[in-house]
Design a protein around this nucleic acid. Sequence first.
DNA 1: AACCAACGGTTCAAATAATGAACCAATTAT
DNA 2: ATAATTGGTTCATTATTTGAACCGTTGGTT
Lengths: 261, 261
Amino acid sequence: MGTVSKALSLLGYFSQTRPEIGLSDLARLSGMNKATVYRMMSELVEQGFAEQTFQGKSYRLGPEVLRLAALREAAVPLLSVAREMLARLSEATGETAHMSILQGARLNALAHHYSARHGTRVTMEDAEVLSFHGTASGLAVLAFSDAAFVDGVLALPLVAHTAQTETRPEAIRARIAEVRRSGLAESVGGFEADVHSLAAPVFDAQGRPLGALAVAAPVGRMTPDQWACAAHDLRACAADLTRRVGGFAPARFTAHIPEEV
Amino acid sequence: MGTVSKALSLLGYFSQTRPEIGLSDLARLSGMNKATVYRMMSELVEQGFAEQTFQGKSYRLGPEVLRLAALREAAVPLLSVAREMLARLSEATGETAHMSILQGARLNALAHHYSARHGTRVTMEDAEVLSFHGTASGLAVLAFSDAAFVDGVLALPLVAHTAQTETRPEAIRARIAEVRRSGLAESVGGFEADVHSLAAPVFDAQGRPLGALAVAAPVGRMTPDQWACAAHDLRACAADLTRRVGGFAPARFTAHIPEEV
DNA sequence: AACCAACGGTTCAAATAATGAACCAATTAT
DNA sequence: ATAATTGGTTCATTATTTGAACCGTTGGTT
């Protein structure tokens, strides 16, 4: 791994639960030498990718990432298109809608939208890492990923997030096969207890899964009628989003797309 | 300059007008060797900071910047950055500093900071609604808003907060034009009697005014010297704040920004 | 008050990774 | 056909990164 990769990988240790990290912690987390981390962070600070909270205190992400994100948006307006779609989807279903994207081997929550229809709702955090086996979004992505990737994911230890989480690789493969048939993934309490989720994959310009669009409702509220309605809206929105980010669905998926949005 | 800085500086060549850049172009732009640029871009692609549009074609910014931007937003919300800046600005000027943000068609005071230098000072209330025509902040925002918005504001009845408040639409348009030239808005007793205010606009990621940063002093204390000092600090702080919330000043404004903070 | 551990930051010889001219193969323009 | 340009690769030379040990401070314990 080159120096640049090492430096950039340091930024990966920041998260919602850990927005600020001190030098020593960062050195421990990354397993790199303190002096090395110091120099790398100094360069990242210099370039605006990180900044220090108060003289000599811990590091956090810098303002430059905002500028780049705005530029990325301008070039590839995924986020803005996704937000629009999420608003539409959550208004249509009356439930929380969210979108996640595949980055390397991780599935990250990117954006979400709540509906005002009900007093209770499923809440989300952006930039949260979603598990492949425990979430509807994860299963939707796996179902249209290549076999090597699926093998890689299932070879890792599978965490049981709740009592309902399916952790047996073969059972997960069976569910993935079903997702491939239906074009829709489902998870009942697999990641958070009492949450019933439906998800559909979104594809990139190469026809590979880019991420997933999902609807999450409290278990009691997902009646058969509601299920059918959410499934339809989700399919339509996911297809539209794929189109609007310049992607296309692979042949084996195309059959599931409703004609009109 | 270290390798990491060099690699990150490559990302700086992407812009709205140039969202995609080929390898050779990037080498020319940066003045670095093609092989060097290639290796650096490969690492950036590997880390998700860049991606290639189509097999072997030009580079553009990658999806990882979106994730980092979401985290930065969560870790450092506008309010906390604004507070930091207000503290700096009021220490530097010895007067009250405040920040307001545009929410829909209203300009709301968001936060303020007093200086301990003088016994008397201008006092502020957060969440107070500021008038566009009567305050320096309002004029600063109007000056860089689109024409339709300005027309809308000036079509409404314009309240005379004090005897000094300018309420004639055409006179206000003239003042706005002046603000556009100077990059700085001024109000003497237009909202509160005996208050002399200076304000500078803060911009969002789309280059639209997000709100304004302002300094407010008792009229007698704003001598020409103090005025010049406050104007300089204000410009510098507003530019820095724009940067730190991920915004950028539109072209017609850029000339006013001081080089150093 | 003395102590200790942990912090961010710094140093410098040794080790490693970055560098760039030349070179491919494939397009694209002439 | 030909010439120029594209993205990508190679490898000996070189310059940068590396990390153990070392500061000066800070904050908590004894």
